[in-house]
Amino acid sequence: MALLEVKDLKVRVEEREILHGLTLTVNEGEVHAIMGPNGSGKSTLSHVIAGKPGYEVTDGQILFRGEDLLEMEPEERAAKGVFLAFQYPVEIPGVATMNFLRTALNAQRKARGEDEYSTPDFLKKVREVSKSLNIPQDMLKRGVNVGFSGGEKKRNEVLQMALFEPSLCILDEMDSGLDIDALRIAADGVNALRSPGRAMIVITHYQRLLNYIVPDFVHVMSKGRVVKSGDKELALELEASGYAQFEDAA
């Protein structure tokens, strides 16, 4: 059974249809890149998979390990193993990062009927992961993302990914706003999480990110559909020729 099956998905925002019948299958262990110009529906797809309100699915299905994802609340999807790394992670003043991480992790474990993490185990795990991502401990005492730089916010997303151990990671424009050094640290963190049991969907406008996170498959989106799929070579072709050919094709 595929990990994620998106079948002929049609999505509206207010009165406008953004996705016009999108189909995508992702198996365990695979890394899929979704590329496309601005407005092609890349972020909409990631939001609909994560369960963000404000999107109306008018047709099609999203199955996660065969279960209907669209019937689940966002927190149920998270507990099942769906993780969206936000393009713009929000700042939450007054909620200490450490408290947030522990509350979220234990909420997911509780939903799965697992025991809550003990405090020493939790702290040990956070320390390990944050060290590998070059996240200083004092950052974890601050409000979630409050006063973090763009790079720190993205690393905080990767930190959560490492802690929650999801089976599907969706990285929405992870490279936006990052300089090359920040991008490399975040990408190294992501690469360390690649495993046979975990799939990733890497959404990006630019090929650059895919030099660091090398995908197994590349899909080109245009005007709310996948218009071409291929291997990593497709990303290089796009870099050379641009998206214009596909805009016409769509």
Binding site: P74, F100, T103, L105, Q108, A111
Partner: peptide, 23 residues
């Protein structure tokens, strides 16, 4: 947007609200 972020990280609605109210 804060509520959705917390829910996307696994917190049920009331728990997400409680965290934001405490803050």
């Amino acid at each position: 947007s804060l509520l959705f972020y917390l829910k996307a990280r696994g917190l049920p609605e009331k728990q997400a609200q409680a965290l934001l109210i405490q803050a």
